[in-house]
Design a protein around this nucleic acid. Structure first.
Lengths: 168, 168
DNA sequence: TAGACGTAGA
DNA sequence: TCTACGTCTA
C-alpha cells in the first residue's frame, strides 16, 4: 500500500514541491500535506495553543475565497455553510480551525495552502499545493442572512517559485 | 500526483496481487480495483447487461457479511441500511449493484473481492484484496423490521494463493 | 456522537 | 439531484 504515516507539522513537507497535484483529500492525508480529510483547516496543538498547519481552498458550498496574485482571502469554517441542511446558518466562532489561523497570525507561523481546482475533464476537483502563506489579518463579515463569517487575509511567502495553475 | 486513470474491467487488475493493502477506498479507485468511492458493489454495463467487477465487504452499518474458508455470504445494497436516517428501512431491489451480481452468476464472470478490515491501530479500516470469486447463488431474506435483503453466496476461484489476513 | 470546503455514479 | 458498506477530528 501507499501508507506513509507522515507527522503533522508546520512548514514545508519534505518531498512535496509547489505545483504538485493530487486527486483526493485522502492523498493529502497520506502524503502529510493536510490530515483533515473533510475539513478545510488543519492545525496542531502546542500546549494550549492551536496553530494552523494547512488550509484547503475549495470553491463552492457557500465558501467564497478570493485569490489575487500573492494574496488570498480565505473564509473561516463553521456556521453550517457546508451543511446539507442550510436552513439554519449560524454565526462562525473563533474556535478550532478559525482560532488556529488567528494564532498563526500572532505567532507568524507559515500555513501551507492547497487549492482545490476543477480538473481538466471537468469531473470533480484536484488539489494543487501552492506553497507557504502568512496570515496578515482577519476580520468578521456578515454573510447571507446576516450570520458572522470570518475572513483571513494571507500573503504568500516571497521567494517561492510560482504555481503553474493550468486549470483556470 | 498518483493518477492512474485505470480502465474498469472484469477480472484481475495488472500489478495488483492478493494481499495487497490500501488505506482508503479512493486508493482503490486510483489503482483500478474498485471505482465506486462509497458504494460496495461496482459494475460495468455491456450493452444492456450489468456485470459486477468488484465488491467490498466492510462490516458495520447494518451489513452482516460472512466469511467461511473460501465461501462468503455478501449482503446486497440498498434499503437504507447505511443511511444515517434509518427510520425508514426499505426493501432492497434487484437493481444496479444487486442486479449486476445476479447477472455475474448467470454469466459466470469473476468478481474481485476486497475486504475492509480493522487496522492494527484500531483507528479506522484498511482494505485488502482477496482475489476472484464466482457468484454461486443468491436469495432474499427478511432483515430487521421485515424488509427484504438480498444475500449472495460467492465462492473463491480455486488456485489463487491465500490471503494472509493478519488483522482478524 | 456529530460535524466537516468529500466524491463518483445512477 | 440524490445515494452510496466514507473517514477524520473535536
Amino acid at each position: 500500500g501507499m501508507q506513509v504515516n507522515a507527522q503533522k507539522m508546520i512548514g514545508p513537507v519534505p518531498g512535496i514541491e509547489i505545483g504538485d497535484e493530487f486527486q483526493y483529500k485522502s492523498e493529502l492525508n497520506l502524503i502529510g500535506l493536510h490530515f483533515d480529510i473533510r475539513g478545510g483547516i488543519d492545525y496542531i496543538t502546542r500546549g494550549d495553543l492551536k496553530l494552523a498547519t494547512s488550509i484547503i481552498s475549495s470553491e463552492g458550498n457557500g465558501y467564497t475565497d478570493r485569490f489575487n496574485s500573492d494574496v488570498m482571502i480565505y473564509s473561516g469554517q463553521g456556521g453550517n455553510l457546508t451543511s446539507k441542511d442550510q436552513r439554519v446558518v449560524k454565526d462562525q466562532k473563533l474556535e478550532t480551525g478559525n482560532l488556529a489561523l488567528a494564532n498563526s497570525m500572532v505567532e507568524k507561523t507559515p500555513v501551507r495552502v492547497i487549492r482545490g481546482v476543477k480538473r481538466l475533464d471537468q469531473r470533480g476537483k484536484c488539489y494543487v499545493y501552492d506553497g507557504l502563506y502568512l496570515v496578515q489579518e482577519y476580520w468578521r463579515e456578515r454573510g447571507r442572512g446576516g450570520s458572522v463569517v470570518f475572513k483571513f487575509k494571507l500573503c504568500r511567502v516571497p521567494g517561492q517559485h510560482s504555481t503553474n495553475l493550468k486549470y483556470y
